[in-house]
Design a binder for these strands. Structure first.
Lengths: 331, 331
DNA sequence: CGGAGTCATGTAATCGATTTCAAGTGGTTG
DNA sequence: CAACCACTTGAAATCGATTACATGACTCCG
């Protein structure tokens, strides 16, 4: 039955015209005589004809698809970004393909950077080899970025955002502030740490005590355990974590031990994922406009595909969201 | 430059063979003489040739893509399912296309059900028109399902799962149990409600007090407010919510008012999304094997694409996860 | 009335691979 | 030695659309 799908010649035959005319009705109706067009449209309806995209794409030398390379699909942080991208791409006639860079072997990623597979690439993973995809097709970097790679970036000002977060803790009166960082080598990790250090230095405070992390719940939980393992008087009175997930893990661990947030420790997250507004205490955090990031990245890529050569970055504004997890230190 | 990508004839010319032979080396190397093959491989390396998928797909009458129709991409519940699907599809050489059914107009969804766009469809949204995609291409339903549509389903036993959840509350001693349902008309809503009623009836208890919901945080929050609005002695002592997100919203609202979970009310969720294990109290819930659902659905679809006609359902086991949000009623 | 200009349409080449069919080579067998 | 077979390879058709170019009909104007 697949085999007997009507093709353009069937329509042409029925309408008594050539395939060229049918094709014109399909993609450029106004250049066809009204009466002829009616005939063709009739024939299309009658045969149930549906255009074959593979054929059109071959001729047009395009694929109609855009690939999003996501470091970890199961991380809810990315799902909203994808939603934003889909919202822009679908109306523009592009399919959104997603690939999980962690799940696939590193090498096999190159298979997505082929013009015959997709018309463009949105990279959300800063740990990919830079040279690999350079010059192969239009690329846009979102959230994270690849240091060597010259491509427009859609992101937030991570350093300034971290600065905002820590400034807030300082303003509350905290002097002993810790930071739970992201994974080693990640560009976001570095930028957020730099922002935190900047804020502290600006107020004459020492560099933050650092706990290792990797953005995951589990690593936040470990950081919580590490914090608890310190003698109470040496514990930082406030902790700024580089992701909300980690902040949740941290708070969970602290509360589990019987201590209270923010009474015993103030906690500041990063991302503002949806759930954290409903926890108790609700998490103070930095709001990232995830949907907008997705939209802008997609639009930017469409522009590039359309020939736009611009490569300046798009920096979206963040927002400091104050909720219940931060308060002045005790005493 | 796109324009000067080497094609198969360039390779053939350089290797001194025909395009047919190059093609054979590409897709069926062992039928080509070893020496010839070496020559061709050499030529491929030398030209930097990369196969054009659009052309191959046109000839093969397939697209190499599979579409996942998701009701709400930004819902973290789905991201892990997508991850599972990607993990199966990528190694099999298929691209995963995702589309948000809420974002796109209902009608435009049909555009995904075209054989020239994808080789198969995984539908995660039970509210789509059944007849629309029937008989057009291989379809697998995951999580939700479309009542009229004859296609294999990969799911959990929602009724039994809800029963388990409510049995647990009953075993703790609760007699006055409420249910916050999913959106009206949803198959999951009905199944979970039925399970809850079944459990109550089996113990001679009255049907649950119902609060409306739609799986979202906000609706859970509203349910919390509605629960609080009742006179204390009339409040159900336990609430079973049809999704974890709603449970989070509910708990947040209750705790916000100064009451305590599970002291003042036991709360039971559904899904076991990652975060809820780290809340305080940690949420008791039904664990859905999301990654496995994605994997099975993808595998099932690949089988169908491969010609497998089987249409029996795959029912994956759930797990009752007991954490801190449920306890015996006060007094 | 002839040549230019419009408009609508058809013919056939094209996108880049795959695959059928035929043919050439060399070896084996009765 | 003829017949047959296995093994390789090439020529050309094919997948299903798009589009450059040619053609024919008709109008307009000097």
């Amino acid at each position: 039955m697949q085999h007997q799908r009507p093709k353009i010649v069937d329509v042409a035959r029925l309408a008594g015209v050539s395939t060229a005319t049918v094709s014109r009705v399909l993609s450029n109706p106004q250049i066809v005589n009204a009466e002829t067009r009616r005939l063709v449209e009739e024939a299309i309806r009658h045969t149930g004809y549906r255009l074959n995209h593979a054929a059109r794409n071959l001729r047009h030398r395009r694929t109609g698809g855009v690939v999003a390379l996501v470091p970890n699909l199961s991380n809810p942080f990315f799902s909203q970004i994808l939603a934003g991208m889909a919202a822009v791409l679908a109306p523009a006639g592009y399919n959104l393909l997603v690939a999980d860079t962690r799940a696939e072997g590193g090498g096999s990623l190159l298979r997505y950077a082929e013009p015959s597979r997709a018309d463009g690439l949105i990279v959300l993973d800063g740990s990919l080899p830079a040279d690999a995809m350079a010059r192969r097709m239009p690329v846009v970097l979102a959230c994270e970025w690849i240091p060597g790679l010259a491509a427009p970036r859609v992101k937030i000002d991570n350093r300034q955002a971290a600065q905002l977060a820590v400034e807030h803790l300082i303003a509350l009166g905290h002097r002993h502030i810790a930071h739970v960082a992201g994974p080693v080598g990640n560009v976001l990790t570095d930028a957020r740490l730099a922002g935190a250090e900047l804020a502290l230095k600006a107020h004459g405070l020492p560099a933050p005590r650092l706990f290792p992390g990797d953005f995951t719940l589990a690593s936040g939980q470990r950081a919580g355990a590490a914090w608890l393992a310190q003698p109470p008087e040496e514990r930082p009175t406030a902790v700024f974590l580089a992701s909300d997930e980690m902040a949740c893990g941290f708070i969970g661990e602290v509360q589990h031990s019987g201590l209270t947030v923010p009474r015993d420790v103030s906690v500041m997250g990063f991302d503002d994922i949806e759930l954290v507004a409903h926890m108790t205490p609700a998490l103070s955090t930095i709001h990232q406009p995830r949907e907008a990031i997705g939209r802008h990245a997609a639009q930017r890529l469409l522009d590039r595909i359309g020939g736009d050569e611009g490569s300046e970055d798009t920096v979206l504004p963040v927002e400091l969201v104050l909720r219940g997890s931060t308060a002045p230190p005790r005493g």
